[in-house]
């Protein structure tokens, strides 16, 4: 269940909207931010807020790249595999990440911290090779830089997670 205040805020947004459906993506993103991904429960709650059948949101959620219908880690790493990043070493960086995290593309680390996904050109070709972690861009990447980023995120996670 969404916390009451989150739900209230989203409901207010919907009520203020001239066409509630135009907020479908925003509401799903917000609910996803809360749950980490769009579980069935999350999708159904979002549908109730938007005022449509869950199927209507499923039609959208399964279309877009940044709506996750399966569990993802706290940090979703989207590695750009489009042409410039690809020629600038995408494959070896990907392999580096996989090795470093001990997972394959599409998988999540057992500690629930990282998920590795590919993404199409993210518009950082001038800083290629690049990747996106929770919608923040990083590049140009080298294996050393990647290690550094992962360490920083691990530390951040350790700091903010109550033990």
């Amino acid at each position: 269940m969404l916390p009451t205040n989150v739900k209230q805020m989203l409901n207010q947004q919907i009520q203020a909207a001239e066409h509630p459906r135009e907020l479908a993506i925003d509401i799903m993103m917000a609910v996803q931010d809360h749950y980490g991904y769009l579980s069935d429960e999350a999708l159904e709650e979002a549908a109730a807020i938007v005022g449509v059948d869950p199927l209507k949101l499923e039609e959208l959620a399964t279309f877009y790249t940044f709506l996750y219908r399966e569990p993802v880690g706290r940090y979703v790493i989207h590695i750009c595999d489009s042409v410039i990043c690809w020629m600038n070493g995408y494959e070896s960086l990907r392999d580096h990440l996989c090795k470093k995290l001990g997972i394959q593309m599409g998988e999540t680390t057992p500690d629930g911290l990282f998920t590795l996904l590919p993404v199409c050109c993210i518009g950082y070709c001038d800083r290629s090779p690049a990747m996106l972690i929770n919608k923040k861009a990083y590049g140009p990447l080298t294996p050393a830089k990647i290690d550094e980023i992962l360490e920083t995120l691990r530390a951040e996670a350790a700091e903010t997670t109550p033990s």
């Binding site: 042409v83 199409c120 050109c121 518009g123 950082y124 070709c125 001038d126």
Partner: peptide, 12 residues
């Protein structure tokens, strides 16, 4: 929605 691969001018 600048998504054409190679394009980043709008971002800049």
């Amino acid at each position: 929605d600048e998504m054409e691969p190679g394009t980043f001018k709008d971002r800049v």
